[in-house]
């Protein structure tokens, strides 16, 4: 019964049961030292002018998947985010690059785009 529910959930989530049965990745255990290796998951961002700047400058402190995770935001909010990264967190981004990045974000991930 329980298995069926899990199966149904997985199917509805579009996941193969096979994948689910793969055992979880274990930590590397060497005595008192506990270690893991983080997987690398490339972020996929939409194509558009300024993408190259975003993929480098917005990936200094965190993966750029912080961007596609967001809901469509007004251009003003995106611009505010870019300046928050610069002012609050010290992102080394010039005014000129900030403008290019803000336009890319508004065009590709904006709320006011048609």
């Amino acid at each position: 019964m329980k298995k069926n529910i899990v199966f149904a959930m997985l199917v509805s989530a579009g996941v193969l049961l096979l994948q689910y049965q793969v055992p979880i990745v274990q930590a590397e255990e060497t005595g008192p030292v506990h270690s893991i290796t983080l997987p690398t998951i490339p972020a996929e961002l939409k194509e558009g002018p300024g993408k190259d700047k975003v993929m480098t400058l917005c990936a200094i402190c965190h993966s750029p998947d912080y961007i596609p995770m967001q809901p469509p935001l007004p251009a003003k909010t995106w611009d505010h985010e870019v300046h928050k990264m610069i002012k609050t967190f010290g992102a080394p981004i010039s005014d000129e690059d900030a403008k290019i990045i803000s336009s890319y974000l508004a065009a590709q991930y904006g709320a006011d785009k048609k």
């Binding site: 793969v22 290796t37 995770m69």
Partner: peptide, 15 residues
């Protein structure tokens, strides 16, 4: 869905 060490398949927000 992604799998990180000591974890099962979880929904990816950021890596």
């Amino acid at each position: 869905l992604v799998r990180f060490p000591e974890k099962t398949d979880l929904i990816l927000l950021t890596s």
